[in-house]
Simulated assay, not measured.
Amino acid sequence: MSLNSIFQYFVPKDRKVFFPLFEQASGNLVVMSNVLIEALNTADLKKREELYNQIDKLENFGDELTHQIYLELSKNFITPFDREDITQLTNAIDDVADYIQGSVNRMSLYKVEKITQPIIKLAELILLGSIEIDKAVKELSDLKNVRHIADSCIRINSIENQADDVFDRAVADLFLYEKDAVELIKYKEVLAALETATDMCEDVANVLETILVKNA
């Protein structure tokens, strides 16, 4: 019997609860991103606000999942991979959700009614990043398809680079063409929050890559 098989014998069965929680959290990012794009593409301001509120509720659900993962960490001595990595992965996923919600809060509070193409493009990149996170997280439970996880991490890094380009061009255009200083600040804040959400996606990818290296 291999050493891994011996350890598996002593691993509590409820350790497997971590993976469904991770998958719910990553899936929640995909739902939040889709709702964000739906909100940005509607001209009905009342409906947009309702969709913003839906994102708030989804972020709260994500917080509940984060709390549940921490609770499981306190209950289980043996975990699927390093406790530190579980904590970092949980926090990184939660950070993506926080910045999606933060972007929405800025648009709502600042009364941003005109949705520009850079805002929509950044939201689309957040969705693409969230989809890749969800794909990778679903491969974590057995680590048989390490290449799939690595490929998703590479795509997330590429998505973040694209978001940097969109943000830089959008801010440059604001300084060139926006004459109202208040409007300039409002849109720059919204763009920055959206771009940071893609940075947080890259943070998730970095944690996933660390897990791969440690469990190779």
Rank of each mutant, 00 (worst) to 15 (best):
D151T: 13
A192D: 10
V204Y: 03
V104G: 06
D173G: 03
S152L: 04
E195A: 01
I6Q: 12
V112T: 14
D85E: 14
D14H: 09
L71G: 05
A39N: 02
G27L: 10
L58I: 09
L127P: 00
N4V: 04
E139P: 00
I37E: 11
A205S: 05
I154N: 09
F77T: 04
I86L: 13
I159K: 06
V112E: 11
V104Q: 08
N34F: 02
D199M: 02
G62L: 02
N4W: 03
E84S: 09
T198Y: 09
P20C: 09
N215W: 02
H67N: 11
Y187S: 03
M1I: 15
S74A: 15
D82N: 13
L3N: 10
I149W: 06
A170P: 03
F175R: 11
A205K: 01
V104D: 09
E113V: 11
D164Y: 01
K111P: 00
E183I: 08
C153R: 01
S108P: 00
F167W: 10
L125Q: 10
D95Y: 03
F81V: 08
D82Q: 12
D164T: 01
H148I: 14
I154R: 11
Y187H: 12
I185N: 08
V204S: 03
D173W: 02
I126Y: 01
K46M: 05
I159W: 07
D44Y: 08
Y9Q: 14
M32V: 08
V171E: 00
D173K: 13
T42A: 00
Q101T: 01
E183D: 12
Q88M: 11
I133F: 06
R48G: 09
T90W: 02
V207R: 01
N28R: 07
E183Q: 13
M200Y: 07
F19C: 06
R147L: 08
L143S: 02
P118G: 14
D180I: 09
A192L: 05
T198N: 11
L191G: 08
V31L: 14
E38K: 14
A192K: 13
A193Y: 14
D134N: 15
T210G: 10
S158T: 13
N60G: 09
E178F: 11
A205R: 01
K114C: 01
S2V: 01
R155S: 03
S2K: 07
V104W: 06
D56E: 03
V146Y: 03
D199N: 12
N41M: 05
V96E: 06
S74W: 04
P118T: 12
E132F: 00
L3I: 13
I131V: 13
H67T: 13
Y9E: 12
P12K: 10
A123G: 15
P80H: 07
L184M: 14
I156K: 01
E38I: 04
K111G: 08
F175G: 12
P20E: 09
G62R: 04
I120E: 12
V112L: 15
S141E: 09
I93F: 07
Q162G: 05
Q117K: 15
S2Q: 05
L212A: 05
N4E: 08
I6L: 15
G102P: 02
F19N: 06
L21E: 14
F77Q: 00
M200E: 12
L3Y: 10
N76K: 11
